[in-house]
């Protein structure tokens, strides 16, 4: 998609040299995200992959400002959202960027009705003129995610995992955001339900032209849904490029190792496969610099 859009369009989100450190004690700081730069264009899906502890979730949370970034610049929708936020910028950010969380049970308030969970953003931003209009908006969004308007009166525990995740998507969508951060939003679901949710996300993107930051560790799903991919390791972005670049021509040894470990549903291939090992203990990413492989394909070495 970026081939058609990216050259002409301004990026929707531009992250440059983002650092997110957490001070645990006086002498110990966790450097979760280091020097990460990437951009997301309107209407595209950017996949972030990496092992657990590589900082994928932290990046998502820093961007939506659940954390205060230690250093670096985040430009979203022409506004700088990295420093202290003034009221106007915060409202713009909260309206235009939404998040879908991993665990659909713990991310929905069990004491609130589905309609009120979805309507909370509408209430805060006063996006309706009367109650009838509010219910109308909520009903429409529920229909869009494959539930029925009558479900608005129910509570989260009355739904199955896949349905709850649809509610999570509806909550994000109702604000009509420009960017949705999907943090492992399908990993907690069964295979057959995953496909339903991924199809839904694709349909919604076609319709509303929103962009996704798709954070996941399931590489075959990331490949399927993403236009471009960034590979994270130990808090550093080690390679980024179009999905085709990354999968057909991985340059960084970590990417190669990661791809060699993707399980394939094919016994003959799977039983003969060799894992490419990767030893990062001798590499200091801080000393590495970015090199262009081709077009939008960059690698850290």
């Amino acid at each position: 998609m970026n081939e058609e859009l990216g050259i002409r369009n301004e990026p929707l989100l531009q992250v440059s040299n983002l650092r997110q450190h957490f001070k645990i004690s006086r002498s110990f700081t966790v450097k979760a995200v280091n020097n990460v730069s990437f951009e997301i264009y309107p209407g595209e899906t950017y996949g972030l992959v990496g092992e657990s502890g590589s900082g994928k979730t932290t990046i998502g949370r820093s961007i939506i400002r659940l954390y205060d970034p230690t250093d670096g610049k985040i430009i979203f929708n022409y506004s700088d959202i990295s420093g202290d936020l003034d009221n106007k910028t915060r409202r713009m950010l909260r309206k235009n960027m939404q998040m879908i969380f991993q665990d659909p049970m713990s991310s929905l308030n069990p004491r609130k009705k589905i309609g009120d969970i979805i309507g909370e953003g509408l209430d805060i931003f006063k996006l309706y003129s009367n109650l009838k209009e509010r219910n109308q908006i909520i009903g429409d969004i529920l229909k869009k995610v494959g539930l029925s308007p009558a479900h608005a009166e129910r509570y989260p525990q009355q739904f199955s995992g896949g349905q709850r995740q649809r509610v999570g998507i509806a909550r994000a969508l109702v604000m009509n955001p420009k960017l949705i951060i999907a943090d492992e939003c399908i990993s907690a679901l069964d295979v057959s339900i995953q496909a339903q949710v991924v199809n839904l996300m694709k349909d919604i993107q076609d319709e509303t032209k929103c962009a996704y930051l798709f954070i996941a560790h399931d590489l075959s799903m990331v490949k399927y849904i993403s236009d471009r991919i960034g590979v994270l390791h130990k808090g550093y972005l080690v390679e980024t490029g179009s999905t085709k670049d990354i999968f057909s021509n991985p340059v960084h040894p970590y990417t190669q190792s990661l791809l060699s470990a993707v399980p394939q549903p094919n016994p003959a291939v799977e039983k003969n496969r060799r894992l490419i090992p990767y030893d990062a203990s001798k590499v200091d990413y801080e000393k590495c610099s970015w090199h262009q492989v081709s077009g939008m394909h960059f690698v850290l070495n």
Binding site: A195, S220, P265
Partner: peptide, 11 residues
């Protein structure tokens, strides 16, 4: 259904 719901790398 199970087989086709899980994309392989060529899907």
């Amino acid at each position: 259904g199970l087989l086709s719901a899980m994309p392989d790398l060529e899907t």
